[in-house]
Design a protein around this nucleic acid. Structure first.
Length: 209
DNA sequence: ATACCGATTAACT
DNA sequence: GTTAATCGGTATA
């Protein structure tokens, strides 16, 4: 196979170690997941992209979290697994939303991956996508692009079909935007927490070279 | 058993 | 700016 057959900014990287995920500060982890490479090997097809947008969900004290007040159900059980576990659930009956579980076992912290910039398996990503769908931006469209479904919930990010790698990209300063989370108005004051992180879209072209 | 609703998206006006 | 689509999860009885 010709290694130059497709654009691969940064190429492959080193899988994030367990210690990245098991730290206590889910907000810090959400920020540090920006610029990491999300890779899936599903149905014999490899696809991946740079994480460009994330949101932190801070467990039992966060009204926006599925685990608010310690709620623990069959759906959100993976949130209580150790850091480095996946949490995938169906939203609005249509969209599969992908989260990275953090902190220790029984502490339900998670980071929602909201957008990626595709870099691996672009042809496969294009064929998975509905013809009219213009982007892989948005938490529901990126899972379609990468083949992630609800049955991928509760998997280990170390050694499974879904993994995250460090390719040495660390957005800071003007490359990094911080603001309130999207679609959580029901969470009252917690909706205003500055838990949403993204790479400034205008800076992406510079970052990728 | 039944009712309600969502960590969204695409297609509208 | 608005709204239909769509269904598993959750709470209530």
């Amino acid at each position: 196979m010709d290694p130059s057959a497709e654009p691969r900014p940064g190429g492959r990287g080193a899988p994030l170690p367990r210690s990245f995920y098991t730290r206590e500060d889910v907000v810090l982890i959400a920020r540090e997941l920006l610029g990491k490479l999300l890779v899936t090997q599903i149905g014999g097809i490899m696809t991946g992209g740079l994480i460009t947008e994330t949101e932190a969900y801070a467990g039992a004290d966060d009204r926006a979290s599925h685990a608010f007040a310690g709620r623990r159900t069959p759906r959100n059980e993976p949130m209580y697994a150790q850091g480095g576990t996946t949490y995938v659930y169906l939203c609005y009956g249509i969209h599969h939303l992908f989260n990275v579980v953090t902190h220790a076992r029984d502490v339900p912290h998670a980071v929602l991956i909201r957008a990626v910039h595709p870099t691996i398996g672009l042809a496969h990503i294009a064929s998975r996508r509905a013809p009219a769908a213009p982007t892989t931006h948005g938490p529901g469209t990126l899972t379609t692009a990468l083949g992630i479904r609800t049955h991928h919930t509760g998997l280990d990010l170390l050694g499974g079909p879904i993994g995250i790698e460090d390719i040495g990209m660390r957005p800071t300063g003007n490359d990094l935007l911080i603001g309130p989370r999207i679609g959580v108005d029901y969470a009252g004051a917690d909706a205003q927490r500055p838990y949403r992180f993204r790479i400034a879209p205008s800076r992406l072209p510079m970052i990728l070279r």
